[in-house]
């Protein structure tokens, strides 16, 4: 999220040059679509919001002030659009305050203690593992998934996330912690198979 390496010329973009805008779309849309898929959980909604994002960006680009960088600016538009969509679909999801600091997510059993850090990078980030990582995010409850995507995937601060979701910063922290702990548990179970396979050899 912090990379601002666009080769698109901002002056040309602001003057309405369509070729530059098409380049911008090609440079940025893959990551934005991936984020939208993660936050919204289905392809149709992600595609609708992707289209809405670039339509808005195209209309707003003459006023773009380059304070945040193009990439960040586009991601903010996409996130705002996605949150609006979620509010329409399930108004209670975004702003509900679930200040439950301790839950079952913090119960850790011996089977959840798998030191997968020692696995080689090739296994941790293989095609199959990446697919599992994506799927695991999708299984999170929506209120946790949104916070996790905003904080750990999009790189927003706790305060920015709290403001966007209209919840307290403490609530953002609690949701993030729960999301991370659930994902850690799921990855432990998933990566444990490599240790079992190793023992069987």
């Amino acid at each position: 999220m912090n990379q601002e390496k666009s080769t698109v010329q901002i002056d040309k973009l602001k003057s309405g040059d369509e070729e530059s805008f098409a380049m911008l779309v090609d440079e940025t849309s893959g990551k934005i679509y991936r984020t939208l898929l993660q936050i919204l959980g289905n392809e149709q909604d992600a595609e609708d919001i992707l289209q809405e994002t670039y339509l808005k960006a195209y209309r707003a680009i003459p006023e773009f002030e380059n304070r945040s960088g193009l990439y960040t600016w586009l991601h903010r538009i996409a996130l705002n659009e996605a949150l609006m969509q979620i509010r329409i679909r399930k108004p209670q999801i975004v702003s509900i305050d679930d200040n439950e600091p301790f839950s079952d997510d913090l119960d850790i059993e011996q089977k959840d203690i798998v030191d997968f850090c020692c696995l080689p990078e090739g296994e941790l980030l293989s095609k199959e593992s990446r697919h599992f990582l994506d799927q695991a995010v999708q299984t999170l409850p929506e209120s946790l998934r949104i916070v996790f995507v905003m904080r750990d995937i999009e790189g927003l601060s706790t305060q920015e996330t709290a403001d966007a979701l209209q919840i307290s910063e403490n609530n953002v922290k609690i949701r993030l912690m729960r999301a991370r702990m659930i994902l850690r548990k799921k990855l432990s179970a998933y990566f444990n198979k490599f240790f079992i396979e190793e023992k069987e050899l």
Binding site: M1, G30, R34, I108, C117, D152, I153, M181, L183, R184
Partner: peptide, 26 residues
Amino acid sequence: NCRIVVDTLKKTVELYEKCASEETNL
């Protein structure tokens, strides 16, 4: 055990950050 939980929690966040930073095609 808690050391493993801390390390794997860090690793979990790191893996997602790595995936997010990679280019992907539409």
